[in-house]
Amino acid sequence: MKNVNYTSWQIAALVILRVLIGWHFLYEGLVKVINPAWSAASFLNAAQGPFANLFKSMASNAATLDVINFCNQWGLVLVGLSLIVGLLSRWACIGGMALLFMYYISNPPFIGLDAIAVAEGSYLIVNKNLIELFTLFVLFLFPTGEIIGLDRLLAFAKLAK
């Protein structure tokens, strides 16, 4: 078990933040899992910016698209579960950051690109994906799974070896 020096308020704030982000991921994931018609195709086809062609080519190949759909929906679910219960939570942060990074660069709010049709706000370079991505980075650097979470039991298991 690591030596950490958080105050209990700091722990509470970090754990709540972790659970909230986990909740967001879990819901985004499950909503796609239960909808048989869901596919990343339309999202990928709407890609803009420097990597637009890469994302569009992903959508054009049925086999690739199946893999992407699977990884995206179950990736979201796993990251969400992991953050909520605090199991392998640092890995979850990395996974979540990777997903958010893809969402961000597929449709970046750069100057000169069209705002996506139903974006619910106005953005310049910084959007919610980018903020959530860096929030996960903070959680990665200030882990709490071993204090409040199943990682605590995992740490004991390791110690016992």
Binding site: M1, K2, N3, V4, N5, Y6, T7, S8, I11, V15, V19, I84, V85, G86, I147, I148, G149, L150, D151, R152, L153, F156, L159, A160
Partner: peptide, 20 residues
Amino acid sequence: MEEKKSNKISRRDTLKALVT
């Protein structure tokens, strides 16, 4: 907050692991 180093799982530890 100081965490005690121990390789025994207390009830308190279990509670902290499962609280969320």
